[in-house]
Amino acid sequence: MKKVYAFENRCLGCGICEVYCKTAHSKSKDVIKANKNENVTSAIVIEEILQPKAISYFALQCRHCADAKCVKACISGAMYKDENGIVRNKEEKCVCCLSCLLVCPFGAVKKSKKGKTVSKCDLCIEVGEPQCVLHCPNDAIKVLDDKEAEALK
């Protein structure tokens, strides 16, 4: 399946992916309203890596694991793998117990700022294509299928 891959050697840690992730998961879908007024949680984690010479970064999203631990751990049936293999969270069912967060080895599930649910990457399935990838200024995150990813490994 297609998922988002991060390229450490290209990531600038600028945070634009987060801005557009929040926008894509907002009600208004408007970049200013979403980031200013709506308390949306980005599903991307930007991590800093301290290297001897410089700071390096990478952006991390849900890996949509084949055997997703979060789906197994979910107590309410909110977390599920859809027919395309995308791990998604039904917000109306989620009780924010954080069992998913407890088991995700990537730390890719976040408690939402509003505290009522968790936030995770859904590959922007409702918007179309992943907005973080579309807006990354340096091609540091890409949507790749398994074959393409294998070739780049």
Partner: peptide, 14 residues
């Protein structure tokens, strides 16, 4: 200021 969302992209990039 009406448009600034305090995302700090400018802070990080300059």
């Amino acid at each position: 200021e009406k448009k600034c969302i305090q995302c700090k992209v400018c802070v990080k990039q300059c």
